[in-house]
Design a protein around this nucleic acid. Structure first.
Length: 199
DNA sequence: GATCGGATTCCCT
DNA sequence: GGGAATCCGATCA
């Protein structure tokens, strides 16, 4: 079943990032269903977290959607070539987010192979934040789209992931965040081959 | 208007 | 393990 909007409006992005492991992310772009099981996430908080785009209330055309009530998509371009997909959480004006970093492909695999330009199902199909967006056809056009829509949404298919199968570690690529870079806000399912490479 | 750098990935060594 | 690709947003003027 589709995850209800209340799930996203809870106050703790770290808890939500952890809860999202084992859930499913789907898109229907151009009528084609693609998606898979979430195996790696990262939390970003609007307070006490220098790594977050909304740190200190930064409000620009890029970050404005973060201030919406939780449950919308925040997609943006990074390094000029990759789109990253985030879920906005918490209530309006409390601009928290969870980045989806790894997916285990389950639906629409032929279409995802096509979009990625790879020949067979392997780690580089959806293992990595810039790759899974490509596979699912996610672009900045989805900026601000509701996660209860029929374009991009998440589902709970049961089978929650027990704590013993979850590993927390520091986030990567955010050295500019100073001491906040050490926060263990990256969550992954232990042993999943679809997580991005450990650094 | 110009400059700087990034929540990444790929390819080459 | 290291550098290139590549462009938008942020910042400063």
């Amino acid at each position: 079943m589709k995850i209800p909007i209340e799930f996203y409006r809870r106050p703790d992005p770290v808890q939500i990032a952890r809860d999202l492991l084992g859930k499913y992310l789907f898109t229907r772009i151009d009528g084609v269903l693609t998606g898979g099981r979430i195996v790696e996430t990262e939390a970003y908080a609007h307070i006490n977290d220098q790594a977050c785009h909304s740190h200190l209330g930064r409000y620009t055309s890029r970050t404005q959607v973060m201030y919406e009530p939780g449950g919308v998509a925040y997609a943006y371009l990074i390094y000029g070539r990759y789109t990253l997909f985030n879920i906005i959480t918490n209530e309006a004006s409390k601009a928290d987010a969870v980045l989806i970093r790894g997916l285990e492909p389950t639906e629409g695999i032929p279409e995802m192979l096509l979009r990625r330009g790879v020949a067979s199902v392997q780690r580089n199909l959806t293992g990595g934040p810039g790759l899974l967006t490509q596979a699912l056809g996610i672009t900045t056009a989805l900026y601000g789209t509701s996660l209860t829509s029929d374009v991009v949404w998440l589902e709970d298919r049961g089978a929650p992931v027990p704590d013993t199968e979850i590993r927390a570690s520091p986030r990567v690529g955010i050295d500019y965040a100073g001491t906040d870079a050490a926060l263990p806000w990256r969550f992954r399912i232990i042993g999943s081959p679809w997580t991005s490479p450990a650094k």
